[in-house]
């Protein structure tokens, strides 16, 4: 079957699905991820196996003896990527639709099911006005990404010398997806070039325009990067948990 036929039949199938399948699928995925992270962080105070460090626990801050055991590095760190995703323009769309049904979907039938009446709808002027600090979470997330990149390099150095293992490849895919997701951020796109009206009028305008156009290409698939990077985070942590529990052993390729 040609690619066009597959795309057409997939679109046809998706179009025929009831409107509520989208919000329910998103709710299930986000709630599932939230429960996994919460349980993991509450149950385990560490996420390190040999040269692997779980992305939830990187960088390994805290851990001082006077602190209670449940105050793991994850508690100190996770608010930052969590805030980055919670204020992300894509996730905002996803949770307004899935959790708040504001609206759950675009059809007139779905919009009639909105939970809030017109007198209570405030958009992003009341509580959600805090989403405007997204750019600050973005800056912080780039700092974390540097640590995650260092962790990935360490993952390729089992026993101190270069080697490729299944775990290191999982780390590489994970950090690549996290970088792609972060670079496709709408706020970064704005900071780099979206805020400029006249590129030929400002210093470095041409470089900013090129960077803006490049980021815009990534930005077109921001939702895809958001989901893929979320799942890659999950898979990376699950892999380390399985290694720690002795359920699997790391497979060395080179």
């Amino acid at each position: 079957m040609a690619y066009g036929d597959i795309a057409r039949s997939t679109t046809g199938v998706l179009r025929r699905l009831p409107w509520w399948t989208g919000p329910i699928a998103v709710t299930a995925a986000l709630v599932g991820f939230g429960i996994y992270v919460f349980v993991t962080v509450m149950l385990f105070d560490r996420g390190e196996y040999e040269n692997y460090l779980s992305p939830f626990y990187s960088p390994p801050v805290g851990g001082e003896s006077f602190l209670p055991a449940w105050l793991s590095p994850a508690i100190f760190i996770l608010w930052l990527p969590l805030g980055f995703r919670a204020t992300c323009y894509y996730y905002r769309k996803a949770y307004y639709r899935a959790f708040f049904w504001d609206p759950p979907a675009c059809s007139s039938k779905a919009q009639q099911r909105e939970l809030r009446g017109p007198e209570h709808y405030r958009g992003e002027t009341a509580l959600f006005v805090w989403n405007n600090i997204h750019r600050y979470f973005m800056y912080g997330s780039f700092v974390l990404l540097v640590f995650l990149t260092i962790d990935t390099v360490r993952a390729f150095l089992p026993e101190g010398s270069f080697g490729i293992t299944l775990g290191s490849l999982i780390f590489l895919v994970n950090v690549s997806l996290l970088w792609t997701y972060s670079l496709s951020c709408h706020s970064l796109r704005h900071v780099i070039g979206g805020s400029v009206d006249c590129y030929s009028c400002v210093k470095g305008g041409n470089a900013r325009r090129k960077a803006y156009n490049w980021l815009s290409v990534l930005n077109r698939q921001h939702a895809l990067w958001a989901w893929l990077s979320l799942f890659s985070l999950l898979i990376t942590d699950v892999y380390i948990r399985l290694l720690l529990a002795g359920v699997i052993t790391d497979f060395r390729l080179v």
């Binding site: 805020s195 400029v196 009206d197 006249c198 590129y199 030929s200 009028c201 400002v202």
Partner: peptide
């Protein structure tokens, strides 16, 4: 009006432009 300004606003501010 945004952050980048226009040629004329830059001209008034004495910023050199290409155009």
């Amino acid at each position: 009006n945004g952050n980048g300004g226009t040629r004329s606003t830059h001209a008034r501010a004495g910023i050199r432009t290409n155009g």
